[in-house]
């Protein structure tokens, strides 16, 4: 049995599964990283994912085009980001509470809209895998990395792009300042409010795309509670990755790899109680979070509403 696990075809299977599983985490967590770098944490990722998953699916089903579906999901993400901004930035509500509110709102709204617009389980074509020329023909690597649908490539490309934006552009510097010392940013004439709003919209769009990936690029269907807690894992991955895109990539891959491995271990019939297999990715992530609990990378003003009067 152990030999089977080390066979090439099995290893390819595990890695390919891991890449697919990592995609929604990566998108949602990179988005959440922008929120937090600007000083706002959004616990509503799960709700935004659920709404993005539904809107993307519904529009794809009605129009017959998953590309129009993803645009609609992005639009829903913009609205959810603005809503979170209104509550947590403009009205300066406690961010944790407003995030939970956004989560419940998104989940409830998605479920309700599904009931009144579709109301039964159905499916769509979804995004088909695109084999990257040349790279896709490399043995092993080609199957594992270069034979997915465009959303997978997009999610992984967002890692270096996010890193570049955050650390190599002035705009990235502004974002980080808004999250570290908003007073200083304000003194320099930057609008902390505008920066935080923009980041919330970016984060929310990314979460909506992560949700839409589940319906348009993974299961090709919508059912109640499709996100199943992935939004919260994504928030944990931001801490795991220490607010750094590469760290988040590592965390998402680690979690997904363990998850893929445990699925395959079960399929191949290795004698491990399935309960241990199922909880392995969560337990290891918690362990890693505990071991990496030093918060020196945390944006200093995270969670603190910005107020010009400085109260």
């Amino acid at each position: 049995m152990i030999n089977q696990l080390l066979e090439f075809s099995t290893i390819i299977g595990i890695l390919t599964t891991a890449i697919r599983l990592a995609t929604p985490f990566l998108l949602a967590a990179l988005g959440e990283m922008f929120d937090q770098r600007a000083g706002v944490y959004n616990l509503g990722v799960e709700g935004v994912m659920m709404l993005g998953a539904f809107i993307g699916f519904w529009v794809s089903l009605r129009t017959g085009s998953s590309y129009i579906g993803i645009l609609a999901a992005i639009f829903a993400g913009v609205l959810m980001g603005l809503l979170m901004g209104l509550v947590s930035i403009t009205l300066q509500a406690e961010q944790g509470i407003s995030g939970i509110g956004l989560f419940m709102f998104g989940v409830g709204l998605a479920g309700y809209l599904f009931r009144i617009t579709i109301g039964y389980i159905t499916n769509i074509e979804g995004f088909q895998p695109i084999k990257i020329p040349i790279l896709g023909d490399i043995p092993i690597l080609g199957t594992v990395f270069f034979n997915h649908n465009w959303m997978v490539y997009f999610a992984f490309l967002m890692v270096p792009i996010s890193w570049f934006i955050l650390f190599k552009t002035t705009w990235g510097l502004k974002i980080r300042t808004a999250g570290m010392t908003p007073e200083a940013a304000d003194t320099l004439g930057l609008s902390v409010v505008a920066i935080r709003y923009t980041c919330l919209v970016i984060g929310s769009v990314a979460a909506a795309m992560a949700g839409a990936f589940l319906t348009l690029g993974h299961t090709n269907m919508y059912a109640d509670n499709i996100s199943a807690g992935r939004g919260f894992i994504a928030v944990a991955l931001v801490y795991f990755g220490r607010w750094n895109p590469w760290g988040i990539l590592g965390g998402a891959l680690f979690f997904s790899f363990v998850d893929a491995l445990q699925l395959w271990v079960q399929v191949l019939g290795l004698k491990i109680p399935y309960e241990f297999a199922v909880m392995a990715p969560y337990v290891l992530t918690i362990l890693a979070l505990v071991l990496a609990a030093r918060r020196i990378w945390e944006p200093a003003a995270l969670g603190k509403p910005f107020n010009r009067e400085g109260d």
Binding site: H218, N225, A228, Q266, V267, G269, Y274, V278, M279
Partner: peptide, 11 residues
């Protein structure tokens, strides 16, 4: 036989 550990996680 393999289990997902959930009743409703379709993904």
């Amino acid at each position: 036989v393999a289990y997902t550990g959930s009743f409703g996680d379709i993904a």
